[in-house]
Structure formats: C-alpha cells, structure tokens
Amino acid sequence: MLHLHTTAAMLRSLVRLQSHVGSILSPTQMCPRSQQFRFALNYSSATAERRRFYQDVSISQGEGGLYEINLDRRKLKTPGGNLFTVPNEALAIAVATEWDAQKDTLKFYTMHLSTLCNTALDNPTHRNKDQMITAALKFLDTDTVCYRVDEPHSLVELQKNEWDPVLHWMENRYNVTIGSSSSILGPEIPEATKDTFRQHLKSYTFWSLTGLEYVITQLKSVVLSMGMIDRHLTVEQAVLLSRLEEEYQIQHWGNVEWAHDYDMFELRARTAAGALFVHLTSESSTVKRKLMQD
C-alpha cells in the first residue's frame, strides 16, 4: 500500500526537478538532439507553451473504478481524444499535482507523468506487451555499463570501480550472465539471460512497461534501470552512472555550464518520473490517509 506522505514526498522532489528544467531553458532553446529525442518519445508532449486556462484541479472516480482528472468541471482527455483515466488513486494524485503545479503558463514538456499516461492510453504505436518487452531488451545488447574503453587508464579504472558493482548485483539478483567488453561489438549476451529478463518483464502491466521502457531509453541501460526500479540505486546514482564517461570528460576538459545543468536536471526529471510511474502502476497504490483524532 502506498501512503499519501510517501507519494507526496516523491512528487515534491519531482516537481522541483521539473521546475529547474523549465527555468533553465525554454523549449526553443533546446539543442537539436534533445528536440528530436523528445519528439520521438513523447508524441503527446507539446513543446509550445500555453496560458493556464483552469483554476482548480481535482480527481474523481469513474466507471470501472478508474480515476479521472478534472480541470475545473471539465474532464481531461488525451491527445487521441480518449477520456484521461488512470488505474489507481495514487497515480491520479500524481498527475493532478503536475497540472496543479503549473503556473500562469503551462509547460507541457515538464509534465512527464501526464505524457506517459497519454502514451499508455492512446498507444500511438499500436504495440502489445511482447513487442514492448522486445524493444526494451534490445537495449541490453548496447547497455551503457557493458561497453568499456581501453584507455585512458584512469577512465578504465573508473568504469570498473563504478559499473562493475552494479553489473555484478544485477547478475546475482536475476541469476544471469551479462558481462562487459571493450570490443566495438560489445559483449555477447547469452540467450538464457534474455529469456530470464523476458519472463520477468511479462509480469509487468502494459502501463508499467510503458514507464520502464521510458526509463531504459533515458539511461540507455537495462542494468541501471532495473537497479533503480528494484531500489538498489537512487535516481541520482543511476543518472550519474549513465553519464559516467561524459562527466569524466567534463572534469578534464570543462563544459558549457548552462548546457550541463540543463542536461542533468532534464535527465533526472525524466528518470524520476519514469521510475515513479512504474511504481505507481505496478504496486498496490491505494492512498492511505491518517484519520484525524478529536
């Protein structure tokens, strides 16, 4: 059971990250690579800003026990025209918090939970669970922590010291062999390993797979994503490990400060939203409120 104060704490952290992203750059200032990446993943996340057109945000329970989001008295709908409904109260609260946190201007590109819900509801690519699992597992062949460098020695040691413990945890946790390689072809992942992960991911709901695939795409790593979803890594740790080589180069050659800050906050916000989405759609998410005592 997910307690209200736990959900609220996670949301406050996420909203702070989203606020950082929105305050650093406007959508028109994003680098071309980020714009292309966003469009490919978030078909429903408009980059144009819009003035806030509602005063109050609320949730209500509709048919089949599903929860709806209300902007004033109007029911929220998806870009595909479907009624915006979510499977449990905790996720409804999370989405409503995103909408309520918007100020005078709606910054849709910061509303990651809403976008993930839109994607799950509209399913614009018309995929089923098996296709989503196959797409997610393709990242295992090019996993960030599996590709190692030959030089310089300091980076070789850094990758070994930082990535090996997570990789070994993953192998022990799921009783699989993954390995690493400095070859341009990367390590050869055994089919038995892929079969194990495939069976594990089949236990996820369609909604949870939507969130998991999103996280894997952000980190470009199944290992780091599963480590975070299984609560072995924090969001901050997973993001730093995914950017290990980039951070190493920055320490040696410097960086453009605003660009580094934007990339870091953006990746943290997306990763945190994806992880929260997975947890809210895969666990018992009825909100438990404390009773007021006289």
Rank of each mutant, 00 (worst) to 15 (best):
A90S: 08
A90V: 00
L91T: 05
L91R: 01
A92V: 00
A92D: 01
I93E: 10
I93F: 14
I93L: 13
I93A: 12
I93G: 06
A94R: 00
A94Q: 04
A94M: 03
V95I: 12
A96F: 04
T97S: 14
T97V: 12
E98S: 02
W99I: 06
W99V: 05
D100F: 10
D100Y: 09
A101H: 08
K103C: 11
D104F: 14
D104T: 15
D104C: 14
T105E: 06
L106Q: 06
L106C: 07
L106E: 09
L106F: 07
K107S: 02
K107N: 03
K107G: 01
F108W: 11
F108T: 14
T110P: 10
T110N: 11
T110M: 08
M111R: 09
M111V: 10
M111Q: 14
M111C: 11
M111P: 11
H112A: 10
L113Y: 02
L113T: 05
S114R: 09
S114F: 05
L116V: 06
L116F: 06
L116T: 05
L116E: 07
C117S: 11
C117Q: 03
C117M: 10
C117L: 10
N118G: 02
A120S: 12
A120F: 04
L121R: 04
L121M: 08
D122A: 10
D122P: 11
D122L: 09
D122Q: 06
P124T: 02
P124I: 04
T125N: 14
T125Q: 15
T125D: 15
T125A: 15
H126L: 15
H126M: 13
R127M: 14
R127A: 15
N128K: 09
N128M: 07
K129M: 11
K129L: 13
D130M: 08
D130A: 15
Q131H: 06
Q131G: 13
M132N: 07
M132Y: 07
I133L: 05
I133M: 07
I133T: 06
A135I: 08
A135T: 10
A135S: 13
L137A: 03
L137G: 02
L137I: 04
L137M: 04
K138Q: 13
K138R: 15
F139C: 02
L140W: 00
L140A: 00
L140N: 00
D141N: 13
D141M: 10
D143K: 00
D143R: 00
D143A: 06
T144Y: 14
T144A: 15
T144P: 12
T144I: 12
V145H: 03
V145L: 15
C146K: 05
C146H: 04
Y147L: 15
R148Q: 01
R148G: 00
R148L: 09
V149H: 01
D150Q: 08
D150W: 00
E151A: 07
E151D: 03
E151T: 01
P152M: 02
H153G: 05
L155P: 08
V156M: 12
V156Y: 05
V156N: 05
E157F: 09
E157W: 05
Q159M: 08
Q159R: 04
K160H: 11
N161Q: 14
N161H: 11
N161R: 12
E162K: 09
E162I: 06
E162Q: 14
W163L: 14
W163P: 11
